[in-house]
Nucleic acid binder design. Structure first.
Lengths: 357, 357
DNA sequence: ATGAAAGCGCTAACAG
DNA sequence: CTGTTAGCGCTTTCAT
């Protein structure tokens, strides 16, 4: 069943059917009604592939992620899809699982399906592959690691803001021995977090000397706390480069019978969904996945509209901020001296720390 | 740049280019090589939409889920995509977010993009919508809730097996007061789990009388433990209808200062990824998401091959089984009498309980 | 073994 | 305002 069938039954031309379906205003309401009746009766659905072929636009956005099982992504994908639905787009998701072959394949698949734009959410992508995309003028948006090439949009993350809030929150709770569990050294985003930590500590006169390098996974967090426990003077609070690390730290704390937050304050980074479900719920620096997805989608849409001509900067920014939950409390040493039963007294969903500086 | 461009440059016809690209064996190796050289030089990627239009097969499988943020799905999606890549398919993912409008839209999108098959992983789908798909003979595979219609494949879940293992595991740990936190009563899958619990308890002479109804979310689990705590004689172990519920009871236990597993054994159901990351890691009944995805994909593939003619049953089964982690231990009453430091002595990844009956 | 040509289902000029 | 028609980029008979 195709457009001709509809045309025949409605006794009009295919052009009219096409116009009616696409709600071209100049079509006679009478005819339009007749067409729609037949369409509904037969349950006709236009073949979008054919439409794409002639229009040259597929109305598909590609989304390249590293792994679906990375807890950072579900929220992003969901938001992206919601937006896609609203805008009559489809999404083509692809994962690289950190395999160069798969990355190449991802790019190839995007091109073969003629996507109208692609958001690249994998942390790092080979320069050469991009060429294929850029060569075909496919709108691109990166997060944080965008190459310094004109014509590709980039969403820059402001790590400093959230990390500063986290450090100051801990300091306000009288912690002075604050450790940091860093991420893999080769990750640009992990490095940036670590730098932000150093700056934030220095700003308030604390020395950022307890830094352990982890791996952004649970195991690294566990190992980090073991190392930290061996120190002559142990930290009373630990800030982690991402949530999985924080979860590892909490797990290890549990195993060592250290109660969080009473015996140790823990702060994560990312605010993955899981962070709400840990015991205790994790206080963490939020990098809003919803917001990120929204910006990415909008960036692609913009890129398509302004049609390459506009030479704007195509830079977007996403800021981070602390979300208070229940994994932080007063420094235990201080706590015995006061009557506070944890810092939990006035929990609000967002940090209400005074603006830094 | 299209197939004609390649044909021109390689000085052959478009037909030959097409054949070469599709590796039709009858094409002269000389020519094939010439074609490939040009293809590589120009970085030509065939337009798959055009190909789909003529071949009538899109090589896209649809995947309808309820929400991406449901922790049950990431693993499934990842596996499904891996399989898709292997088989040269693309996947079109759609979420219903439990909204009838979105469900309808999902179906429409699938049809408009002419998917070659769709896996429906949402728990429940309106009969009427399916008609559209079935009418067009789109291969379908359901999980657990497949309608009793011929021509659609269904993956049936064997809940009994895993739940029996869980109950017997708890019984072996000397628990006799085992509670069950059920899921929403309108969910077929939740009902089945609850029944399996009753049967399993009865089988070993325990009476399944502590059943609280939850909601398959964290909150329900928390509420359940509160209720349970008010009972004159409290349970020493609780089996939950899904993992989120179990996480809720663990959270509540933490808040009430009950240590898991020493003070209370907790078992979940599903084995979502998160279950490995809770404190303590959750012992749970696994319903392998990988396996589920594999079966679903294969079912679709089969459906396409045997081309509707075969009147087989198209029923698949996925069994469940217990995964031991660290949220269960001996009944505390018994524990003081023995020297066991928890049942954790001989943990293996899979339950080694004797086969039931 | 290769090429010419007829479509796949739709949209967009162009005419009327 | 509506219909005719020429493609969109590819595959696939059917001749050669």
């Amino acid at each position: 069943m195709d457009i001709r069938e509809i045309a025949r039954r409605a006794k009009v031309s295919t052009a009219t059917v096409s116009r009616a379906i696409n709600r071209v205003p100049t079509v006679d309401p009478q005819l339009a009604k007749r067409v729609w009746r037949v369409v509904d009766e037969l349950g006709y659905y236009p073949n979008i592939q054919a439409r794409a072929l002639v229009s040259g636009r597929s109305r598909i956005f590609g989304l390249i992620v590293s792994e679906f099982t990375n807890p950072f992504f579900p929220e992003i994908v969901q938001t992206f899809e919601n937006l896609a639905v609203e805008n009559n787009y489809e999404i083509l998701i692809t994962s690289t699982v950190n395999d160069p072959k798969r990355m190449e394949l991802s790019v190839r698949r995007m091109i073969e399906r003629r996507v109208d734009g692609v958001a690249i959410l994998t942390f790092g992508m080979e320069e050469g592959l991009l060429e294929h995309l850029r060569y075909r003028k496919v709108p691109l948006v990166f997060v944080d690691v965008g190459p310094d090439v004109r014509g590709v949009a980039n969403i820059r993350i402001n790590y400093q803001n959230g990390i500063r809030q986290a450090v100051q929150h801990l300091a306000a709770l009288r912690h002075t021995r604050i450790a940091f569990v860093a991420g893999p050294p080769h990750l640009k985003s992990a490095l940036a977090r670590r730098e932000a930590f150093k700056i934030s500590m220095t700003e308030i006169g604390l020395s950022p000397d307890m830094i352990i390098v982890g791996d952004h996974r649970l195991e690294g967090g566990m190992r980090a706390l073991i190392e930290l426990s061996r120190l002559p003077v142990r930290p009373t609070a630990v800030l982690c480069s991402n949530d999985m690390t924080a979860i590892g730290v909490m797990r290890q704390a549990y195993d060592q019978n250290i109660r969080v937050p009473e015996g140790l304050s823990v702060v994560g980074f990312d605010d993955i969904r899981l962070a709400e479900f840990t015991t205790p719920p994790l206080t963490t620096v939020q990098m809003s996945q919803k917001e990120l997805a929204r910006i990415a989608f909008q960036a692609l849409l913009n890129e398509i509209e302004c049609d390459s001509s506009s030479h704007e900067r195509h830079e977007y920014e996403l800021t981070t901020s602390l979300v208070l939950r229940r994994s932080t409390a007063l420094d235990p040493a201080e706590r015995s001296a006061t009557s506070a039963k944890g810092a939990g007294g006035s929990r609000s969903r967002n940090a209400s720390a005074p603006p830094p500086r």
